[in-house]
Amino acid sequence: MTSPQLTPPPIALAHDDDGPAPAPGGPLPLVLLHGTPFDRTLWTPLRERLAPRRRVLVPDLRGYGESDVTPGTVEFATFAADLALLLDARGIGDFVLGGLSMGGQIAMECVRRFGTRVRGLLLVGTTPEAESPEGVRARVELAARLEREGMAPYTAEALPRMTATPPESPVTAHVRRMMHGTPPAGAAAALRGRARRPDYRQALSRFTGPALVVVGEQDTYTPVPTARALARLLPHARLEIVPGTAHLPPLEAPERFGGLVSDWLDAEAGAR
């Protein structure tokens, strides 16, 4: 494919690319996009579970983890173009695409831009609508606050909503490390881009591949009714609710979540 032109200039995304080499009739690669303010280690339990049998590509988005930061505003079109360039560089054609929260919305942008290559869609704790006017203001204000204060105050406020695990648990410690480790300028740029995102409902309603929508039972960012509405929007979707989890089922319940995704890939979305 011809990759979209990128403004600002392209960067090399830090990434993990594990699993067997492509083979005729073999499983499709799975590409996973993290949310904010996280990094690619969000997907480590799932990547390690699937990589023995399936190629799994997991990048750090622009401005996150080990990838370079672009200050100011990074539109979702730029995130999608970054991914297209990485896919081309890694020799990946058709693939299954997954994303959590903001990563799910970037996955929707990819469906809108080069959806013929997306053979299956995994959406976790995410929503397709454009931002409301109140949401735009809140994201822009939060972006300025992160640049002014750094990540620590926001992490202290938001972390209790991110997971349903105890504050002293290894899961909560992992999430705290990801949040503290996110460059404030990177998170701020993504927040401004997220405030400008389009409505993805029409693009999703035309997506004909299999889709799996997953939500934590206790998620207050994207509650269960929101996930139900998203699943109804997609022509070939099923919904899974993960008990005892909030916004991050891949880390909070890795065995349950990994089993759901593995079974879905094997049954519906994993074959060439």
Score class of each variant (00 low, 15 high):
106 I>N: 01
96 V>K: 04
76 F>I: 05
74 V>C: 08
92 I>N: 09
111 V>I: 15
110 C>H: 04
83 L>E: 00
103 G>Y: 02
64 Y>M: 14
102 M>C: 13
68 D>G: 15
88 D>W: 12
72 G>H: 10
94 D>H: 04
74 V>M: 10
73 T>V: 15
70 T>S: 12
63 G>P: 00
98 G>P: 00
84 A>M: 11
64 Y>F: 14
58 V>P: 05
63 G>R: 09
97 L>P: 07
100 L>P: 09
56 V>W: 00
54 R>V: 08
60 D>S: 11
80 A>V: 10
55 R>T: 09
59 P>E: 03
78 T>I: 02
102 M>H: 07
96 V>R: 01
74 V>F: 05
77 A>K: 02
61 L>W: 02
53 R>L: 14
77 A>Y: 05
100 L>G: 11
75 E>M: 10
84 A>H: 08
66 E>Y: 08
110 C>T: 00
63 G>Y: 06
84 A>S: 10
109 E>R: 15
101 S>K: 06
54 R>C: 02
91 G>H: 10
99 G>F: 05
111 V>F: 14
66 E>A: 06
76 F>G: 09
68 D>V: 10
62 R>S: 12
110 C>L: 11
60 D>Q: 06
110 C>D: 02
64 Y>C: 07
88 D>G: 10
55 R>Y: 06
100 L>F: 14
108 M>C: 06
56 V>E: 00
74 V>N: 00
94 D>L: 02
72 G>M: 08
93 G>W: 06
92 I>M: 07
112 R>L: 09
101 S>M: 15
101 S>E: 15
77 A>C: 12
87 L>G: 04
100 L>D: 04
75 E>S: 14
110 C>I: 03
58 V>H: 03
101 S>G: 12
79 F>Q: 05
86 L>K: 00
78 T>Q: 04
107 A>S: 10
88 D>L: 14
81 A>L: 04
94 D>V: 11
96 V>H: 01
67 S>H: 03
68 D>T: 14
66 E>S: 09
106 I>F: 00
109 E>H: 13
94 D>N: 11
74 V>K: 02
106 I>C: 07
100 L>Q: 14
97 L>C: 06
58 V>K: 00
86 L>P: 00
109 E>D: 11
111 V>K: 01
55 R>I: 04
53 R>M: 10
65 G>A: 08
99 G>T: 13
103 G>Q: 03
75 E>Y: 06
59 P>L: 04
111 V>P: 01
99 G>W: 01
81 A>K: 13
100 L>N: 07
93 G>Y: 12
81 A>C: 15
64 Y>H: 13
67 S>Q: 03
65 G>I: 03
81 A>Y: 01
111 V>W: 05
86 L>E: 08
112 R>Y: 03
70 T>N: 10
86 L>R: 06
86 L>A: 12
56 V>H: 03
93 G>R: 07
55 R>G: 01
57 L>W: 12
60 D>T: 13
53 R>Q: 12
66 E>G: 09
81 A>N: 03
81 A>T: 05
96 V>N: 04
57 L>D: 01
60 D>L: 11
80 A>L: 04
73 T>Q: 09
57 L>F: 05
82 D>H: 14
70 T>R: 12
78 T>N: 09
101 S>W: 13
103 G>R: 01
89 A>D: 15
